[in-house]
């Protein structure tokens, strides 16, 4: 009769464990993507695609466990939105990895420095997101992590403007070459926005229960 209460949060623990794994995979994928950019080896970015598949399975588990009754209904919507946001970050990172395979290397060389900086900030933001999530069931101040993530996002925004300035001056041979570069830049700069949104949901969860 009271299995949900007497289980002492068994399903909640499963969700928390899975969310940690989900964010962990995102961190691994971000680092892997950063390495691929660093070494200019597009094949290495395929690890992102494999990790995204694993992450997708975990996301489905998380959402179904939450819908089976884990956590108070009051917390569920924002927790689900957080998970969906991490998943969208994964999808965007996967797009970036796929586009990196197609990008013209000489064009990439001209924007390499900025792209590396962005990839590095993205990887850092993933780790910050992981720490922010840890604060929900451990010690620490989520507000500080949230602020740090916002600062990182601001840095990416600044680099994005520099990138656009450079991109305008690049001569492209055809439509597809231009589109691939443009989409690639769009994808790597969007990741920070999504991580920031995910972190905002964590903050909302925190303040809604305090």
């Amino acid at each position: 009769m009271f299995d949900k209460i007497l289980s002492f949060g068994k399903s909640e623990n499963i969700v928390i464990k899975n969310i940690k794994s989900h964010i962990n995979l995102l961190c691994s994928a971000s680092n892997c993507f950063k390495d691929a950019l660093n070494k200019l080896e597009p094949e290495k970015a395929s690890c992102v695609i494999e990790l995204e598949r694993d992450a997708d399975t975990i996301r489905r588990d998380i959402i179904s466990t939450i819908h089976e009754g884990a956590f108070l209904p009051y917390v569920r919507p924002n927790l689900c939105r957080f998970v969906e946001m991490v998943d969208e970050t994964f999808d965007t990172l996967e797009d970036a990895a796929l586009l990196f395979r197609q990008i013209d290397k000489s064009i990439f060389k001209t924007i390499e420095h900025e792209c590396l900086k962005i990839a590095s900030i993205n990887a850092e933001m993933c780790e910050l997101l992981q720490i922010a999530f840890e604060t929900l069931h451990g010690k620490g101040n989520i507000k500080e992590k949230n602020l740090a993530i916002r600062l990182c996002e601001k840095q990416v925004d600044d680099i994005k403007f520099e990138l656009i300035d450079k991109l305008i001056r690049i001569d492209v041979k055809n439509f597809w070459e231009g589109k691939i570069v443009s989409d690639f830049v769009e994808s790597i700069t969007r990741i920070s926005d999504l991580i920031e949104d995910a972190s905002d949901y964590l903050y909302i969860i925190e303040i809604s229960l305090k």
Binding site: I5, G9, E12, F71, L136, H137, E206, L209
Partner: peptide
């Protein structure tokens, strides 16, 4: 509660509330 429980981690509060409400 604001001075005590709300200082605890969010998921702990969530767990506490489930028992407390009952």
């Amino acid at each position: 509660l604001e001075k005590t429980i709300s200082k605890l981690p969010t998921f702990f509060i969530e767990r506490f509330l489930r028992t407390a409400l009952l």
